[in-house]
Design a protein around this nucleic acid. Structure first.
Lengths: 213, 213
DNA sequence: GATTTAATGTAGTGAGCATTACATAAATAT
DNA sequence: ATATTTATGTAATGCTCACTACATTAAATC
């Protein structure tokens, strides 16, 4: 395979390195980052199964060999796209659940962020959540479920710092609410209504915690 | 095609008619109702796309021609299964939202029913809700979305009789909560926890309505 | 018994899928 | 210049999919 793969990728994909250490063979005829962005939009809008490699190569204006040379396989590209999605479109959990924030307020803020992020467009809802419900034995669903578990775990850890006693309950409820918001967005609910839904859902946890106290 | 299709179906499928008005040709070698029940389980567990006709015929112990003679096509069978699902596994909306029930209580009860119905098993979550998020341009997704809209409309109408002013809001919130519960069930959440989630979600609407009043 | 009707088993159909063989083109390295 | 390395375009690979042609079987009707 590739010996110094990591350095190569960095150099070729992003022009961060000042002295452009040129690669050996024929240069790639398309921008890999642009292609990733387009692939992300397409995967988000159509899902893994419904988006064929032919769709992708056509949209990117390349042929299958170039596709496989650049991304390895459809599944590897998908995994890369999922991680890119987290970076580019992921919720700002750190801000929503900043240390010192009351748990109820933090959850309310996080759900508000989600209402914004999931808002209807050509590709709406959370890409990871929607993909995670693919069939149990699908490789793509497995990738998505990995990313969702990573997010759940991160949120859980953040909540631990706010209210350790209710962390399990609250993170379960947050994940459920995010799934509900994402589904509603997919079903065409407009942003303003999503915000109301997020507020009502947050109110639920708030009231529940008050009653428990 | 078939001239007196309706009567034929009734007679051959269910033995409701006392004098078994026997059909003309060779009798079907399998029980169509049993087959429908099995197909429902399979579609619920795997979804439309992931379940092939070959999977179905193998599970039913029949060959493709028998399958198509009995059900028309994969999509027609799916539509029939979706309607059967509503009858056999659908939530008891009439009881949950019985006339005279305070809206908050009715919604709480409906979500409790859902927590029971969606409980983890080989096929968990709501079959219709999970299927409705198939790709936008998929025929199966369209069928599921039709059924979901029918349910939404029915729930909306029932809520109109309890609290007309909040019917739009409440039915939107119910649909979102059902989607969240269904997703959580699919992700393996046990029944007891689903009940807690349902209670918290219901508390949200309850608190919101109180504040608005 | 002859005819009609419908379901069955065997064996395919064409279409779409992800992926790749192979020769060629374009760059660097020697 | 020549060799090496990588990407490209054309065209195909094997596979799975939903679905069907066709001859046969099993029942009711005449």
């Amino acid at each position: 395979m590739r010996i110094d793969g990591v350095k190569d990728f960095v150099v070729n994909d992003t022009k961060i390195t000042p002295q452009a250490t040129a690669r050996r063979g024929r240069p790639r005829g398309f921008d890999r980052q642009e292609a990733l962005a387009k692939a992300q939009d397409l995967f988000h809008a159509k899902g893994y199964d419904a988006l064929s490699v032919a769709d992708l190569t056509h949209a990117l204006g390349i042929n299958p060999p170039s596709f496989y040379a650049a991304f390895g396989s459809k599944l590897e590209l998908y995994d890369e796209v999922l991680r890119r999605y987290e970076r580019t479109e992921g919720l700002d959990v750190d801000t929503a659940l900043a240390p010192g924030t009351p748990l109820s307020d933090g959850v309310a803020r996080l759900l508000r962020y989600a209402a914004d992020a999931y808002a209807s467009g050509s590709a709406c809802g959370c890409m990871v959540i929607e993909a995670a419900r693919g069939t149990a034995d699908s490789a793509a669903g497995e990738k998505a479920r990995e990313r969702m578990e990573a997010s759940r775990s991160y949120i859980h850890q953040r909540i631990l710092g706010l209210d350790a006693g209710n962390a399990d309950l609250a993170s379960d409820y947050v994940m459920m609410s995010l799934a509900g918001l994402s589904a509603s967005a997919r079903n065409g609910m407009p942003t303003a209504r999503l915000h109301v839904m997020a507020a009502i859902a947050a109110e639920g946890l708030s009231g529940y915690l008050e009653n428990a106290a």
